[in-house]
Design a binder for these strands. Structure first.
Length: 874
DNA sequence: AATGGCACGC
DNA sequence: GACGTACGTGCCATTA
């Protein structure tokens, strides 16, 4: 069946404008109304799947209604200029979607919609009308549904005859009579004074229409009402006339002209990108992006790969599709070099001695995308890849870590080199991901290799211009290989230990659950914040301290405040704590432990964080509990993979604050570290102006929180939260801190100024972070950017340092022929497994290498310890 | 499949 | 005067 969707353009744009905050893109163009409008369009297209579509706009200022009543729509607020300027963008978007739009002189959007709705229903179309204006309800029939915006923009309500009758007790046609009686202040339709919705509906239920009410005034109850109706006869008739949608608007357009479906997705995406609707682009791209038109590319599919196809310099694609590349399939290879463009099937490639030898050759210069992925995936198959000198992902990340994607396709577009489709277009995503026929894969891989080949010199030049060559070549590239080796080595877990802990936890969780249900007087899901909120704040009537956007907050800090009010709370907190341990750590870790070896192989993401830190996934081994003893026991399950070996852990002591002392040059801080003082006590002494003996545990706690704030760039609000004090007090704390360390204050001020001028901040080893928001007019954005400017050089330099230590540590292990293995990195900590005979060496070597990784004006300090398990290495 | 709330580490 | 306030990962519940 044919389906026509009619959209009241002005009404939806208005709704979107007022429902959304005033967004703008980086060119300062306001975009909230276009954004809302587009969201609505996408939703309509997806849900309604219309065969025909039209957006109607109001034309000009005067319409035929002004002849009837020249004050029609009088007193209306002028359209805000921030909205008016968005209408051309809305039209542009509609054109990209190939959606018909028009306006007709002298008529309103309503009339166009009414006329078409009538025409279409006569031709047996299903008609859906989208608007925010209740007037349109008069169009509802068995063929026509009117969908009104309720709240926001995508929250809507569909009105059919039944719903109108249920809500108002009248027919759609009587909506006009209702308006005639009650008027409409937004359109300046007068109606009958003193008659509102209630009275109008009552009258209509009794008399049926405006005319019948007026004919039967003597039967209307109430003297006052009779008088009013009598006095406003003409006004009521006129109001009804004004509210009536005109169904005979003259225009040429035929329904067939409104067909919808065929449009240029690239064009839509282009506009979305221009307006910075990134979330919509991703959504839209994956939903329906058709293969874009690309220029042809020539390549050979090689069955046997020989020396004549290979050369010292090449771009290589090792296509590993699964997100987790450990023991993963390789879908194929592509090579682009001066000899041509080649695709090779995986089995052909790995069976070719020439090819495998070429991969192993250390003297080649191979460019890849995501070196670690390629090396690790090949490594699991027993193939060495040794000649990688360029990783496009890494280069793009170092040049600008804030970019949301460093994918070849995106870098290619950004730099306008090569034509590459996004992987998602070729393979799909989620459950629908699949590998298409070989021809498609071959072309895609070749295009990627080709782009890589072209992009390498471009990004190399940029790295050089940024003085980031060394960071790239000497630090991150070697580190990626080292991390790959750590991941492949994996860390052994004592499964039985985990399982036993799990059994214990499950028992205790059951007991706690029972106790909680008892105290609550009924069963509910404690894991559901919604249900928990109802129990605590409604059933038990505890004071709701904080709200979230969906209901009551039940977070730990709220519960802690409630603990004194009801016994149940401490049980819930305990339940949460144990539940977390069981689901995330016990079950989570068991799930990812490799059966045959009892090893866990995490993956580090080296091209993600804005500061230069690593992150770890699948599982995340950088957030294994330590703070509470209960959780810390999880670490007992991490053990050496060889009998008799031990775990060795070394962590930097206060590395960030030492970095701060170095870059600020603050004498007091430097001295504190040179004499290896307890830095939090020292801070307390300086901030509270007391001597060492007078520092109370509370003073030290506050000082520690301030130091924490410095390291992580938190706001006065953040500090107030962690100390449980007011924002003002927190701000004073920070002020006093800065007054105590004037050089730190100077550094903070200077770095912001410097970053504003240059547009970015850098770390010791030239890592960069751009901060465009430093000049934002938005106070929040600007403050955030300022804190980032102060914090990133500190945290980023600390990241540089430990990375450098890792590279050096790796060389040392190799040079000295040590069997010890580096296993994990947790931001300021390195974990090794070490054979007994190397214990002495390693206990000395590891902290030495870490402490000497860079030379600062303060000493670096690394504490090292060992044990049978990670837990014992403390 | 996406979003929100919560909690873990640094 | 309000905004919404280190980052990153992963679990569970809820909703679409």
């Amino acid at each position: 069946m044919k389906k026509l969707v009619l959209i009241d353009g002005n009404s939806i744009a208005y709704r979107a404008f007022f429902a959304l905050p005033l967004l703008n893109n980086d060119k300062g163009v306001y975009t909230n109304a276009v954004y809302g409008f587009t969201t609505m369009l996408l939703k309509i297209i997806e849900e309604e799947k219309p065969t025909h579509m039209l957006v109607a706009f109001d034309a000009g200022k005067t319409t035929f209604r002004h002849k009837t009543f020249d004050e029609y729509k009088g007193g209306r607020q002028k359209t805000p200029p921030e909205l008016s300027e968005q209408f051309p963008l809305v039209r542009e978007m509609l054109d990209a979607f190939n959606i018909s739009r028009f306006e007709v002189e002298n008529y309103e959007a309503d009339d166009i919609i009414g006329t078409l709705a009538k025409d279409a229903s006569e031709k047996e179309y299903e008609v859906k009308v989208y608007s925010g204006d209740k007037d349109l309800l008069q169009l509802v029939s068995d063929k026509v549904t009117v969908i009104l915006t309720k709240k926001g923009i995508t929250n809507v309500e569909a009105y059919d005859e039944a719903l109108i009758s249920e809500k108002y007790g009248i027919t759609p046609k009587q909506i006009i009579d209702m308006k005639g009686l009650m008027g409409d202040s937004s359109d300046n339709i007068p109606g009958v004074p003193g008659v509102g919705e209630k009275t109008a509906l009552k009258l209509l239920k009794e008399f049926g229409s405006v005319e019948h009410v007026l004919d039967s005034i003597d039967q209307v109850s109430g003297k006052k009402m009779k008088e009013k109706l009598e006095q406003n006869r003409e006004q009521a008739i006129m109001s009804k006339e004004l509210a009536t949608i005109y169904l005979e608007v003259p225009f040429e357009t035929e329904l067939d002209d409104l067909s919808f479906g065929d449009y240029d997705k690239q064009k839509v995406v282009a506009i979305m990108k221009e307006l910075e609707f990134t979330s919509l682009v991703t959504k839209f791209d994956t939903e329906g992006a058709k293969a874009q038109e690309l220029d042809e590319i020539t390549y050979e599919v090689l069955e046997t790969i020989e020396k004549r196809h290979l050369s010292d310099e090449a771009a290589l694609i090792v296509e590993v599709l699964s997100e987790n590349y450990h023991q993963a399939n390789i879908e194929g290879f592509a090579i682009v070099n001066e000899k041509g463009r080649f695709f090779i099937q995986t089995d052909h490639a790995l069976n070719s001695k020439d090819f495998v030898d070429w991969l192993k050759d250390e003297s080649t210069k191979i460019a890849v995308f995501d070196a670690k992925r390629a090396v690790v995936a090949l490594g699991w198959k027993g193939i060495l890849l040794n000649g990688v000198t360029f990783d496009l992902q890494m280069a793009s990340y170092l040049l600008d870590p804030s970019l949301s994607s460093h994918e070849i396709s995106d870098v290619a577009k950004r730099k306008d080199k090569g034509q590459v489709q996004e992987d998602e277009v070729i393979y799909g995503k989620g459950a629908k991901q699949k590998v298409p026929e070989q021809e498609k894969v071959a072309e895609h891989l070749v295009r990627k290799a080709d782009a890589l080949y072209q992009l390498k010199p471009v990004l190399e030049k940029e790295l050089k211009d940024n003085s980031q060559e060394e960071l790239f070549r000497e630090l991150e590239m070697p580190l990626s290989i080292i991390l790959g080796r750590m991941e492949t080595t994996g860390v052994k877990v004592d499964k039985e230990q985990l399982e036993n802990m799990g059994t214990d936890l499950e028992g205790r969780l059951r007991d706690l659950e029972q106790k909680i249900h008892e105290l609550a007087g009924g069963t509910f899901n404690i894991n559901s914040p919604k249900q928990l909120g109802e129990v605590l704040f409604e059933k038990l009537e505890l004071p709701p301290i904080k709200k979230t956007k969906t209901g009551y907050s039940t977070s730990a800090d709220v519960l802690e405040k409630l603990a004194k009010d009801h016994e149940i709370v401490e049980y819930i907190l305990h339940y949460r704590q144990l539940g977390k341990l069981n689901s995330t750590y016990i079950e989570g870790l068991l799930k990812v432990t490799k059966e045959e070896t009892n090893k866990i192989h995490t993956r580090y993401n080296q091209a993600l964080t804005q500061t230069g830190r690593l992150s770890s996934t699948d599982p995340n081994l950088q957030n294994i509990p330590i703070r509470l003893e209960e959780g810390r026991k999880i670490r007992k399950a991490f053990i050496p993979s060889e009998p008799g070996w031990k775990m060795v852990a070394a962590d930097y002591s206060q590395i960030e604050l030492r970095v701060l002392a170095h870059i600020s040059g603050d004498e007091k801080l430097i001295e504190a570290f040179q004499t290896d003082m307890d830095i939090h006590t020292k801070t307390a002494m300086d901030v509270f102006h007391v001597n060492k003996e007078e520092v109370t545990s509370n003073m030290r706690r506050s000082a520690k929180a301030v130091n924490f704030g410095i390291v992580y760039g938190i706001s006065d609000f953040g500090l107030s939260q962690s100390l449980g004090i007011t924002r003002k007090e927190a701000a004073q704390f920070i002020e006093r801190y800065l007054a105590s360390y004037p050089k730190v204050k100077e550094y903070m001020d200077n770095i912001i100024e410097d970053a504003r001028e240059k547009g970015y901040v850098s770390t010791l080893l030239q890592r960069r972070r751009y901060l465009p928001d430093l000049t934002s007019r938005n106070f929040n954005k600007r403050s955030f950017a300022e804190r980032t400017a102060m914090n990133t050089p500190i945290q980023g330099t600390a990241a540089d340092i430990i990375k450098k230590a890792m590279v050096e540590m790796s060389s040392k292990l190799e040079e000295e022929n040590l069997k010890s293995r580096m296993l994990l990195q947790v931001h300021d900590e390195l974990i090794f497994e070490v054979p007994v005979e190397e214990m002495e060496t390693m206990m000395k070597l590891v902290p030495e290498v870490m402490e000497q990784a860079v030379k600062l004006d303060v000493p670096l300090k690394a504490d090292v310890s060992f044990g049978e398990t990670w837990y014992d290495a403390k």
